[in-house]
């Protein structure tokens, strides 16, 4: 039985990888762009799913995403820096500013963290818009596309693979982190703060580490965003975008911290685009779809899929899942 599953697993996995790699050749530039967007949204969702594992919901994902984008944009235009050099700087800026702010919020628990996030989301957007240095509401633009040697990332296919690189880096880091010793401590905190602190885990410090890592990756996503967007405008990084990020995670399935956000992002990148024909009714239809999904698939699309898949693919052993709780041990990684 074991070998059989192993082969199937490898085969299916290989097919999936092949499909992902071949996608930009199977579709046109517009669809490729939507996949690039999916990856961006997916990375944002990943960072939300990451902090949720220590019981902290972030409502400021888009703000730090913006911090990354603006850092890259400003360093590239004002300091004439190369795109690649701005990546670590963006991450560090986001972590440093985040550290100052979260020193206040994290020790005060989940609800304060949540509301603090909203204030940050609003404040950072206001900062970018009202302060001349950041280019005002019109935003800041970057002229040149990132390049390594002769390879310029200006076409959709190049950007798609650049995005895959970023996404892969995200996934590997998150996966490794969750498997490490620190990851187990995070899981413990996510399950019960009381229990975790009773076994000697410094909850505040571990949460801080988690949130700052998430900040780093958010900023990195922002830098990647600049690579294909070339323009940073404050309205792109508002509170509504942070709410969208939560939607990706919930729609995908909050218990699946690696694949869930990607699936959710895929759905929410494509559904509104296919609804474009509905013009002014598009946002209403998308909202109704979201309500229906949340009501009828409370564990997200992945939760539903794995529930369906059980009878014919996985019937040999009872599937043990955490049902309907965001803070219980998520099933993955």
């Amino acid at each position: 039985m074991k070998t059989g599953t192993d082969i199937t697993k490898k085969l299916v996995f290989a097919v999936a990888v092949a499909v992902v790699l071949a996608l930009p050749w199977m579709t046109g530039p517009y669809t490729t762009q939507l996949f690039i967007l999916t990856m961006t949204y997916g990375m944002l969702g990943l960072s939300f799913a990451f902090t949720i594992r220590v019981g902290l919901p972030r409502f400021d994902s888009a703000a730090w995403w913006g911090v990354g984008a603006y850092t890259t944009a400003i360093l590239m235009t004002k300091a004439d820096m190369s795109f690649w050099l701005t990546l670590p700087i963006a991450g560090i800026v986001s972590m440093a500013v985040g550290f100052l702010i979260y020193r206040i919020a994290i020790p005060r628990g989940m609800m304060v963290f949540l509301m603090f996030g909203m204030v940050i989301a609003l404040a950072i957007q206001q900062l970018f818009g009202s302060v001349e240095f950041f280019g005002g509401w019109g935003g800041t633009e970057v002229i040149e596309a990132p390049a390594i040697g002769g390879l310029v990332f200006d076409g959709k296919r190049e950007l798609y693979y650049l995005g895959l690189g970023f996404l892969g880096f995200n996934l590997i880091c998150y996966y490794a982190l969750m498997r490490s010793r620190i990851g187990r401590s995070w899981n413990a905190i996510g399950q019960s703060v009381k229990l975790a602190s009773s076994v000697g885990i410094n909850v505040v410090r571990y949460r801080m580490a988690n949130v700052l890592i998430s900040n780093f990756f958010l900023a990195l996503t922002g830098s990647f965003y600049m690579a294909f967007s070339l323009v940073a405008v404050p309205a792109t990084f508002g509170l509504d975008k942070s709410l969208n990020v939560i939607m990706y995670v919930i729609i995908g399935g909050i218990a699946y911290s690696l694949l869930g956000p990607l699936v959710g992002a895929l759905i929410l990148a494509f559904v509104p685009e296919y609804m474009r024909v509905a013009a002014e009714y598009e946002s209403i239809i998308t909202a109704v779809v979201i309500i229906l999904v949340v009501i009828f698939l409370p564990e997200g699309v992945l939760g539903w899929v794995s529930g369906r898949a059980r009878p014919w693919l996985l019937r040999r052993r009872p599937w043990v899942r955490s049902v309907g709780s965001k803070n219980k041990e998520p099933e993955s990684g």
Binding site: T5, D6, T8, K9, V12, F13, V15, A16, V19, V20, L23, Y256, L259, L262, V263, L266, L302, V305, S306, A309, L313, L314, R317, W319, V320, E331, S332
Partner: peptide, 17 residues
């Protein structure tokens, strides 16, 4: 359990894409 999870997910992903 973990492997099954991956199979299902990879299959679903491949299908959707």
């Amino acid at each position: 359990m973990k492997k099954r999870y991956w199979i299902v997910m990879a299959l679903a992903l491949a299908l959707v894409l």
